[in-house]
Design a binder for these strands. Sequence first.
DNA 1: GCAACTATATATAATGG
DNA 2: TCCATTATATATAGTTG
Lengths: 126, 126
Amino acid sequence: MVRKKVRLQWIVDNAAQKATYKKRVMGLMKKVRDLSILCGVDACVITYNPYHQEPQVWPSDPSLRPNKSLLSLGVGRRMTKPRSGETTNEEQKEGDQNLRIQCLGGRLLEGLESKDLLDLMWAIDN
Amino acid sequence: MVRKKVRLQWIVDNAAQKATYKKRVMGLMKKVRDLSILCGVDACVITYNPYHQEPQVWPSDPSLRPNKSLLSLGVGRRMTKPRSGETTNEEQKEGDQNLRIQCLGGRLLEGLESKDLLDLMWAIDN
DNA sequence: GCAACTATATATAATGG
DNA sequence: TCCATTATATATAGTTG
Protein backbone atom coordinates (compact mmCIF):
# COMPACT_ATOMS: atom_id res chain seq x y z
CA MET A 1 0.00 0.00 0.00
CA VAL A 2 2.48 2.61 0.90
CA ARG A 3 6.02 3.13 2.04
CA LYS A 4 6.22 -0.58 1.78
CA LYS A 5 4.03 -3.21 0.25
CA VAL A 6 2.27 -4.98 3.06
CA ARG A 7 2.41 -8.74 3.37
CA LEU A 8 -1.03 -10.20 3.56
CA GLN A 9 -0.70 -11.98 6.85
CA TRP A 10 -1.61 -11.68 10.51
CA ILE A 11 0.09 -8.66 12.05
CA VAL A 12 1.71 -9.90 15.22
CA ASP A 13 2.68 -6.57 16.78
CA ASN A 14 -0.30 -5.41 18.74
CA ALA A 15 0.08 -1.67 18.31
CA ALA A 16 0.66 -1.98 14.59
CA GLN A 17 -2.33 -4.24 14.23
CA LYS A 18 -4.61 -1.86 16.03
CA ALA A 19 -3.41 1.08 13.96
CA THR A 20 -4.00 -0.84 10.77
CA TYR A 21 -7.38 -2.02 11.92
CA LYS A 22 -8.50 1.46 12.68
CA LYS A 23 -7.44 2.86 9.34
CA ARG A 24 -8.75 0.01 7.29
CA VAL A 25 -12.09 -0.31 8.97
CA MET A 26 -12.72 3.33 8.19
CA GLY A 27 -11.78 2.84 4.58
CA LEU A 28 -13.97 -0.21 4.39
CA MET A 29 -17.04 1.55 5.75
CA LYS A 30 -16.51 4.35 3.26
CA LYS A 31 -16.30 1.87 0.41
CA VAL A 32 -19.56 0.20 1.33
CA ARG A 33 -21.27 3.51 1.63
CA ASP A 34 -19.95 4.59 -1.76
CA LEU A 35 -21.07 1.38 -3.37
CA SER A 36 -24.46 1.71 -1.84
CA ILE A 37 -24.90 5.26 -3.06
CA LEU A 38 -23.41 4.85 -6.52
CA CYS A 39 -25.27 1.71 -7.42
CA GLY A 40 -28.35 2.11 -5.32
CA VAL A 41 -27.91 -1.21 -3.62
CA ASP A 42 -28.36 -2.26 -0.05
CA ALA A 43 -25.17 -3.29 1.59
CA CYS A 44 -23.86 -3.99 5.02
CA VAL A 45 -20.50 -4.65 6.67
CA ILE A 46 -19.93 -6.07 10.06
CA THR A 47 -16.59 -6.45 11.72
CA TYR A 48 -15.84 -7.77 15.10
CA ASN A 49 -13.70 -5.16 16.76
CA PRO A 50 -11.16 -6.76 19.03
CA TYR A 51 -10.90 -3.54 21.00
CA HIS A 52 -14.53 -3.13 21.81
CA GLN A 53 -17.39 -5.30 22.87
CA GLU A 54 -19.69 -4.43 20.05
CA PRO A 55 -19.13 -5.21 16.41
CA GLN A 56 -18.79 -2.29 14.06
CA VAL A 57 -21.52 -2.06 11.53
CA TRP A 58 -22.34 -0.03 8.51
CA PRO A 59 -24.91 1.44 8.09
CA SER A 60 -23.87 2.91 11.36
CA ASP A 61 -26.78 3.80 13.54
CA PRO A 62 -29.80 1.56 13.17
CA SER A 63 -31.84 3.55 15.61
CA LEU A 64 -31.71 6.61 13.40
CA ARG A 65 -33.39 4.81 10.58
CA PRO A 66 -37.11 4.73 9.97
CA ASN A 67 -37.15 1.03 9.29
CA LYS A 68 -39.37 -1.40 11.01
CA SER A 69 -36.78 -3.93 11.85
CA LEU A 70 -33.17 -4.71 11.64
CA LEU A 71 -31.28 -7.83 12.03
CA SER A 72 -28.41 -7.55 14.37
CA LEU A 73 -25.66 -9.92 13.48
CA GLY A 74 -23.10 -10.96 15.98
CA VAL A 75 -19.81 -12.10 14.66
CA GLY A 76 -18.05 -14.44 17.01
CA ARG A 77 -14.77 -13.58 18.55
CA ARG A 78 -12.01 -15.55 16.98
CA MET A 79 -9.80 -17.83 19.00
CA THR A 80 -6.80 -15.92 20.25
CA LYS A 81 -3.57 -16.10 18.31
CA PRO A 82 -5.17 -17.06 15.04
CA ARG A 83 -3.50 -18.53 12.00
CA SER A 84 0.08 -17.71 12.77
CA GLY A 85 1.50 -20.11 10.24
CA GLU A 86 -0.34 -19.14 7.10
CA THR A 87 1.41 -19.25 3.81
CA THR A 88 0.45 -16.87 1.05
CA ASN A 89 -1.19 -19.59 -0.99
CA GLU A 90 -3.24 -20.82 1.87
CA GLU A 91 -4.38 -17.48 3.13
CA GLN A 92 -7.90 -17.44 1.88
CA LYS A 93 -8.55 -21.06 2.61
CA GLU A 94 -7.13 -20.84 6.10
CA GLY A 95 -8.97 -17.62 6.65
CA ASP A 96 -12.23 -19.26 5.80
CA GLN A 97 -11.57 -22.21 7.99
CA ASN A 98 -10.62 -20.14 10.96
CA LEU A 99 -13.55 -17.89 10.61
CA ARG A 100 -16.34 -18.65 12.98
CA ILE A 101 -19.48 -16.73 12.50
CA GLN A 102 -22.01 -17.21 15.15
CA CYS A 103 -25.55 -16.24 15.41
CA LEU A 104 -25.58 -14.27 18.59
CA GLY A 105 -28.85 -12.58 18.22
CA GLY A 106 -31.32 -10.53 16.34
CA ARG A 107 -33.36 -7.77 17.78
CA LEU A 108 -36.25 -5.59 16.89
CA LEU A 109 -35.90 -1.87 17.16
CA GLU A 110 -39.45 -1.40 18.18
CA GLY A 111 -41.64 -3.17 20.64
CA LEU A 112 -39.81 -6.24 21.74
CA GLU A 113 -37.21 -6.39 24.39
CA SER A 114 -33.96 -7.11 22.65
CA LYS A 115 -32.69 -9.31 25.43
CA ASP A 116 -35.47 -11.78 24.81
CA LEU A 117 -34.54 -12.09 21.22
CA LEU A 118 -30.91 -12.55 22.00
CA ASP A 119 -31.86 -15.42 24.23
CA LEU A 120 -34.10 -16.90 21.61
CA MET A 121 -31.51 -16.65 18.90
CA TRP A 122 -28.97 -18.15 21.21
CA ALA A 123 -31.24 -21.07 21.75
CA ILE A 124 -31.73 -21.47 18.03
CA ASP A 125 -28.02 -21.33 17.52
CA ASN A 126 -27.53 -24.20 19.90
CA MET B 1 -10.98 7.82 -8.82
CA VAL B 2 -9.48 7.71 -12.20
CA ARG B 3 -9.73 9.34 -15.58
CA LYS B 4 -12.21 11.50 -13.83
CA LYS B 5 -13.19 11.98 -10.24
CA VAL B 6 -16.50 10.30 -9.72
CA ARG B 7 -19.42 12.16 -8.24
CA LEU B 8 -20.79 10.34 -5.26
CA GLN B 9 -24.33 9.92 -6.44
CA TRP B 10 -26.67 7.36 -7.95
CA ILE B 11 -25.45 6.29 -11.39
CA VAL B 12 -28.43 6.56 -13.68
CA ASP B 13 -27.04 4.83 -16.76
CA ASN B 14 -27.70 1.17 -16.31
CA ALA B 15 -24.69 -0.25 -18.08
CA ALA B 16 -22.34 2.10 -16.30
CA GLN B 17 -23.90 1.29 -12.97
CA LYS B 18 -23.55 -2.42 -13.47
CA ALA B 19 -19.93 -2.07 -14.54
CA THR B 20 -19.16 0.02 -11.50
CA TYR B 21 -21.00 -2.36 -9.23
CA LYS B 22 -19.06 -5.30 -10.49
CA LYS B 23 -15.70 -3.67 -10.03
CA ARG B 24 -16.43 -2.17 -6.67
CA VAL B 25 -18.01 -5.21 -5.15
CA MET B 26 -14.89 -7.14 -6.01
CA GLY B 27 -12.71 -4.50 -4.44
CA LEU B 28 -14.88 -4.44 -1.38
CA MET B 29 -14.72 -8.18 -0.84
CA LYS B 30 -10.96 -8.05 -1.17
CA LYS B 31 -10.76 -5.30 1.43
CA VAL B 32 -12.77 -7.23 3.96
CA ARG B 33 -10.72 -10.29 3.39
CA ASP B 34 -7.51 -8.30 3.82
CA LEU B 35 -8.75 -6.72 7.00
CA SER B 36 -9.76 -10.06 8.35
CA ILE B 37 -6.40 -11.62 7.62
CA LEU B 38 -4.22 -8.69 8.67
CA CYS B 39 -5.95 -8.01 11.94
CA GLY B 40 -7.29 -11.45 12.72
CA VAL B 41 -10.82 -10.22 13.08
CA ASP B 42 -14.06 -11.72 11.93
CA ALA B 43 -15.77 -9.65 9.34
CA CYS B 44 -18.58 -9.97 6.88
CA VAL B 45 -20.00 -7.99 3.97
CA ILE B 46 -23.34 -8.45 2.40
CA THR B 47 -24.57 -6.63 -0.67
CA TYR B 48 -27.82 -7.02 -2.41
CA ASN B 49 -26.96 -7.60 -6.03
CA PRO B 50 -29.54 -6.04 -8.31
CA TYR B 51 -28.58 -8.46 -11.06
CA HIS B 52 -29.04 -11.64 -9.15
CA GLN B 53 -31.52 -13.08 -6.72
CA GLU B 54 -29.06 -13.82 -3.98
CA PRO B 55 -27.07 -11.30 -2.02
CA GLN B 56 -23.34 -11.46 -2.36
CA VAL B 57 -21.58 -12.35 0.81
CA TRP B 58 -18.04 -12.54 2.06
CA PRO B 59 -16.90 -14.94 3.38
CA SER B 60 -18.13 -16.52 0.23
CA ASP B 61 -19.29 -20.05 0.72
CA PRO B 62 -20.68 -20.81 4.16
CA SER B 63 -21.25 -24.45 3.37
CA LEU B 64 -17.56 -25.02 2.83
CA ARG B 65 -16.78 -24.01 6.35
CA PRO B 66 -16.51 -26.36 9.27
CA ASN B 67 -18.48 -24.09 11.50
CA LYS B 68 -21.38 -25.13 13.57
CA SER B 69 -23.69 -22.42 12.59
CA LEU B 70 -24.04 -19.38 10.46
CA LEU B 71 -26.45 -16.61 10.40
CA SER B 72 -27.79 -15.88 6.99
CA LEU B 73 -28.71 -12.27 6.57
CA GLY B 74 -31.04 -11.12 3.86
CA VAL B 75 -30.82 -7.57 2.73
CA GLY B 76 -34.03 -6.23 1.29
CA ARG B 77 -34.30 -5.04 -2.25
CA ARG B 78 -34.48 -1.29 -2.47
CA MET B 79 -37.37 0.47 -4.08
CA THR B 80 -36.74 0.99 -7.76
CA LYS B 81 -35.43 4.33 -8.97
CA PRO B 82 -33.97 5.45 -5.70
CA ARG B 83 -32.87 8.90 -4.69
CA SER B 84 -32.61 10.55 -8.10
CA GLY B 85 -32.53 14.04 -6.73
CA GLU B 86 -29.90 13.79 -4.08
CA THR B 87 -27.63 16.63 -3.41
CA THR B 88 -24.09 16.01 -2.31
CA ASN B 89 -24.76 17.19 1.20
CA GLU B 90 -27.70 14.95 1.64
CA GLU B 91 -26.14 11.83 0.26
CA GLN B 92 -25.42 9.95 3.43
CA LYS B 93 -28.60 10.90 5.13
CA GLU B 94 -30.71 9.96 2.16
CA GLY B 95 -28.76 6.80 1.73
CA ASP B 96 -29.49 5.76 5.25
CA GLN B 97 -33.12 6.58 4.94
CA ASN B 98 -33.55 4.61 1.78
CA LEU B 99 -31.78 1.63 3.14
CA ARG B 100 -34.07 -1.09 4.29
CA ILE B 101 -32.51 -4.01 5.94
CA GLN B 102 -34.79 -6.86 6.63
CA CYS B 103 -34.42 -9.90 8.68
CA LEU B 104 -35.15 -12.61 6.20
CA GLY B 105 -33.82 -15.54 8.06
CA GLY B 106 -31.11 -17.42 9.77
CA ARG B 107 -30.26 -20.98 9.27
CA LEU B 108 -28.14 -23.67 10.78
CA LEU B 109 -25.79 -25.56 8.57
CA GLU B 110 -26.21 -28.75 10.47
CA GLY B 111 -29.17 -30.54 11.87
CA LEU B 112 -32.08 -28.21 11.57
CA GLU B 113 -34.12 -27.64 8.48
CA SER B 114 -33.32 -24.17 7.30
CA LYS B 115 -36.85 -23.50 6.20
CA ASP B 116 -38.05 -23.79 9.75
CA LEU B 117 -35.62 -21.20 10.92
CA LEU B 118 -36.55 -18.87 8.11
CA ASP B 119 -40.12 -19.07 9.24
CA LEU B 120 -39.16 -18.51 12.83
CA MET B 121 -37.01 -15.53 12.05
CA TRP B 122 -39.73 -14.14 9.90
CA ALA B 123 -42.09 -14.40 12.80
CA ILE B 124 -39.60 -12.71 15.07
CA ASP B 125 -39.13 -10.00 12.54
CA ASN B 126 -42.80 -9.26 12.57
C1' DG C 1 -1.65 5.64 22.26
C1' DC C 2 -3.33 9.37 18.61
C1' DA C 3 -3.37 12.66 14.82
C1' DA C 4 -1.10 14.53 10.99
C1' DC C 5 1.80 13.89 7.07
C1' DT C 6 3.71 11.92 2.75
C1' DA C 7 5.24 8.57 -0.45
C1' DT C 8 3.61 4.69 -2.51
C1' DA C 9 0.49 0.80 -3.38
C1' DT C 10 -4.14 0.02 -4.86
C1' DA C 11 -8.60 0.73 -6.77
C1' DT C 12 -11.05 2.03 -10.52
C1' DA C 13 -13.36 5.38 -14.62
C1' DA C 14 -12.91 5.64 -19.10
C1' DT C 15 -11.51 3.54 -23.26
C1' DG C 16 -10.78 0.15 -26.98
C1' DG C 17 -11.24 -4.52 -28.86
C1' DT D 1 -21.61 -7.33 -22.58
C1' DC D 2 -17.21 -8.66 -21.05
C1' DC D 3 -12.09 -8.40 -20.78
C1' DA D 4 -7.75 -5.80 -20.74
C1' DT D 5 -5.44 -1.49 -20.47
C1' DT D 6 -4.01 2.72 -18.42
C1' DA D 7 -4.16 7.09 -16.32
C1' DT D 8 -5.54 8.94 -12.29
C1' DA D 9 -8.00 9.16 -7.68
C1' DT D 10 -7.82 6.91 -3.26
C1' DA D 11 -6.22 4.23 0.51
C1' DT D 12 -2.84 3.51 3.66
C1' DA D 13 2.30 1.99 5.92
C1' DG D 14 5.62 4.11 8.02
C1' DT D 15 7.05 8.16 10.23
C1' DT D 16 6.92 12.21 13.13
C1' DG D 17 5.37 15.38 16.91
